[in-house]
Every structure is written in C-alpha cells, then in structure tokens.
C-alpha cells in the first residue's frame, strides 16, 4: 500500500519522504522503517529542537509521548509523534552517554511535553536542561536522591 505524506503542499510516499527529510536535515544519522507504519529517525541531540519544530508546527504532527530507556549503548530517548492523516508513528531517537546524560528540554516547542520530561528526570536521572519546572513528579518525598528505579544493574543483559 502507498502512503501519501503531505509535505509542503506535495504528496510523497515513504521513500521520498525519507530522502526529503535527510536533505533538509543532513545531520540525521539514519532513518528506517520498523514493522508497518513506524518510522524511526536517529538524530544527534543538537538538532532535536529544530526537527521537533518542523514536525510539530510545520507538519502538524501530534505529540504522543517520550520513551526513555537504559540500554547497552547508552540512554535512548525516543520522542513519539503521530501523523494522524496517515496513521504513521514518527519517532525521533536520541542516544545519550551513560555518564552525565543531558538533553535539551522540548517544552518551548511542545507545551504538553513538560510532564513526561519530569518523569524521565525522576525515573532515569536524565538531566533535562532548561526545563521550566524541574521538580519531583512521581516518586515519593522520601525517595532517596540519586537513585533511579528504571536504571539497569546489569546493562549487558539488559536487566
């Protein structure tokens, strides 16, 4: 099946769409389609705000959620957006190092993203820079500082 993405007044299929976005943002590391209707775009963290602004404001994608996880290579932060006209899930994948993970806050672009960024700070200890309200969100007041429930003990086994 052909999926038509409307980009800047033109309709394109997924291959053209990927070429287009790679031309627009040459910093993109890679872009791949996973399963059906799921596009993952791997980016360095410095173009995060630019590409988010393009997707969210220009193409009008809906913000869904942010997933953060602790994996072998580092902390993966995945920003999920949804293109409701085609039903595709568009994902921005940012890889952060295990030591001193920091990422810029997306709140200036996507207003509603505030909560999940606080949750990520709580549960994984990833520092979100320039967050408007970096307060504890989910964990109890008595929870010890510097302990993060979703960090792994054994990264090689992913557990």
């Amino acid at each position: 099946m052909q999926y038509k993405f409307k980009v800047e007044g033109k309709y394109m299929n997924i291959e053209e769409y990927i070429t287009n976005i790679q031309k627009k943002f040459p910093e993109i590391i890679k872009a791949e389609v996973v399963n059906t209707k799921r596009l993952f775009v791997f980016i360095p963290k410095d173009i995060l705000l630019k590409i988010t602004d393009y997707w969210f404001n220009e193409l009008g994608y809906r913000y869904v959620i942010v997933t953060a996880m602790d994996s072998k290579e580092g902390f993966e932060v995945i920003y999920h957006y949804s293109d409701d006209a085609t039903g595709w899930m568009m994902n921005l994948n940012v890889l952060l190092p295990h030591e001193n993970p920091e990422v810029e806050s997306v709140t200036p672009v996507v207003y509603g993203i505030e909560w999940i960024e606080r949750e990520i700070m709580d549960l994984l200890g990833i520092k979100v820079l320039n967050h408007p309200k970096p307060k504890r969100f989910l964990l109890a007041e008595s929870w010890p500082e510097g302990e993060y429930p979703l960090r792994r003990k054994n990264r090689q086994e992913n557990r």
Partner: peptide, 29 residues
Amino acid sequence: IGIGHAEAPRGEVFHFVKSDGSNSPVRHK
C-alpha cells in the same frame, strides 16, 4: 521494537515494547 496504539474510551492508549528475543520485554512504555 513494537509500537501499538488503541482507542480507549478516553482516547489513544500507547504501548511501546522492546524485546531482545528472550521471553520478557526489556522496556515497556
């Protein structure tokens, strides 16, 4: 990696599952 969503009475429910080939998920958002 699997992303599934469904329309609940209140709106879209979103699940992200990462599997490493073992019998349990390694990350479930």
